[in-house]
């Protein structure tokens, strides 16, 4: 990478923003495509169980399966305080 492109890449142009947004979105959507149909439903039910105890949003619960559908990864972002 030349010195010129180094300086250029530091500048946050709108094209760079577009690229970063796309990278995140496309990776997410590709992952979704490969997942079994029951996953959204399962995510809903897990969400329902957790929200009995703490206040959380849909985005706070992420359920992912790896490529061969052998490891289930559950990511829950908990709020600071439990439900009162």
């Amino acid at each position: 990478m030349g010195i010129l492109s180094y300086f250029r890449s530091k500048k946050q142009t709108s094209a760079n923003v577009a690229k970063e947004r796309l990278q995140v979105l496309v990776a997410y959507e590709r992952n979704q495509r490969n997942q079994p149909d029951y996953l959204p439903q399962m995510q809903q039910e897990i969400l329902a169980v957790i929200s009995r105890y703490v206040d959380i949003d849909v985005d706070d619960v992420q359920v992912n399966l790896d490529e061969n559908c052998s490891i289930l990864e559950l990511n829950v972002t908990l709020p600071e305080h439990a439900k009162d």
Partner: peptide, 17 residues
């Protein structure tokens, strides 16, 4: 527009797709 940083470059699109 690509040069001005206003449009995704061919490399950007290729990298993503």
């Amino acid at each position: 527009r690509v040069q001005a940083g206003e449009m995704l470059s061919v490399e950007d699109v290729q990298e993503i797709l």
